[in-house]
Design a protein around this nucleic acid. Sequence first.
DNA 1: CATGCCAACATTGTATACATTATCGGTAGG
DNA 2: CCTACCGATAATGTATACAATGTTGGCATG
Lengths: 241, 241
Amino acid sequence: MTTERYDYMVESNLCRRFKMASLLLDKSIRQDIYERIRDDITYGRLMPGERLTEKKLSDDYTVSRSPIREALRQLESEGLIRYERNKGMEVVKLSIKQLQEIYDLRALLEGYAVRCSMKQITGKDITFLTSLHKKLINAAQTKDIQAWLQNNSLFHGYFRDKSGNENLSQMIVMLKRRTFNYQNMSLSYASYFETYIEHHAAILEACKKRDVDLAEQSMRQHVLMTNQAIVNFVSMNRSSI
Amino acid sequence: MTTERYDYMVESNLCRRFKMASLLLDKSIRQDIYERIRDDITYGRLMPGERLTEKKLSDDYTVSRSPIREALRQLESEGLIRYERNKGMEVVKLSIKQLQEIYDLRALLEGYAVRCSMKQITGKDITFLTSLHKKLINAAQTKDIQAWLQNNSLFHGYFRDKSGNENLSQMIVMLKRRTFNYQNMSLSYASYFETYIEHHAAILEACKKRDVDLAEQSMRQHVLMTNQAIVNFVSMNRSSI
DNA sequence: CATGCCAACATTGTATACATTATCGGTAGG
DNA sequence: CCTACCGATAATGTATACAATGTTGGCATG
């Protein structure tokens, strides 16, 4: 009995230290765990189909199962993991059809974001987007995938943020997270940098001309084309992902 | 101690077989709670801005806080409730701007759903939609709001389901849940049955002519018009909702 | 050797205990 | 009268205990 109490005290003290660490960051353990697992999935440290148990996660992060379970519920709602009652969960593995569905939606929504953003984009914004475009060209020439990813994200994110529709923005981000790892893998496999740069150039050009319809259409085509590259990649590597 | 444990295990395994039959009908408490709170919000038994505490919920449903908390995480992810750390949660109260954002998205997505569904809609589907349309006309004439809501839901749901895009469908449903109560309240306040019937007729007509662009456009306009009615209603009753 | 059964174990589902934080009313000091 | 502070209370955040369910591997049986 005494030892039990002793053990408990030790555990409690350990946990307190972790709690304090997260308190300093003003973040709950649950929120922290949520973000870590989410990023592990989007950045491919956890692969599609991989099975996760609450025990393993609570051991890995040295916290109890309570915050873990709550974080998992969030991730499930966002379509990143799949639950089966009394059996556990796994990282969502998207079928070709699902990938196409999601990219169809992304094309629609990102295109619409461009349309909305046109009302608020000024010459200054065009200048900034052009500088991003140049960085992308540079990244393509030097085959710097990290730089590409980063600036590509900024390019797309710019229209998203300028759309002025917070709900639209959130949806696009959610869809992006669900496919990010697939996109990343396919990019490492076979990059279509030149094609993408042409697309971006077309979008930019349409923005300069203030041609809303063309800008929206260009973005839609661009996203759909990206999807094609990913579908090709997944089709060829279906066994492992 | 060992024997006790042994006996317990035996009984547990034996008992399991007798329960097997009813297992399929079982639902986890969490899932049950989730659905009940969700419906309480969408059907207005819980009003926007209303504050909920875990203790009250666990008392109401006579369960512990664990499944409650997990259900609340799901509801939060879906935008139905809002959490503030260490302070608790409340039913989301949408601003006029948010309502417009969400309806903008619904218009975009439901319009797109009509576009997608056109590939798969046959004469038989048109016949069914026409019968729904007639029921709506009847409900309008008799001012039967319940019948209107039910058949209107079927009308819109038909295109959604026929779109063949499961992700699109889920998004529309989610957006609908977030605004359902507002829509419902505004309908009780001032109904635009005649206008909506004209819209539906236009959509049906476009379907019959297989005019995809017109059908999509008609649905978009219809949804945006609905939004206008709701915004008017909310603007006038801002104090209470 | 194949197969069905079942105890042991592993995992998820729920309840409870404990820890931390917010809220609110009252009181002392200005 | 106002404000700042304190403490009681109630809420959320986390850890742990207990219960129900799924899985596995060994053993008996044919």
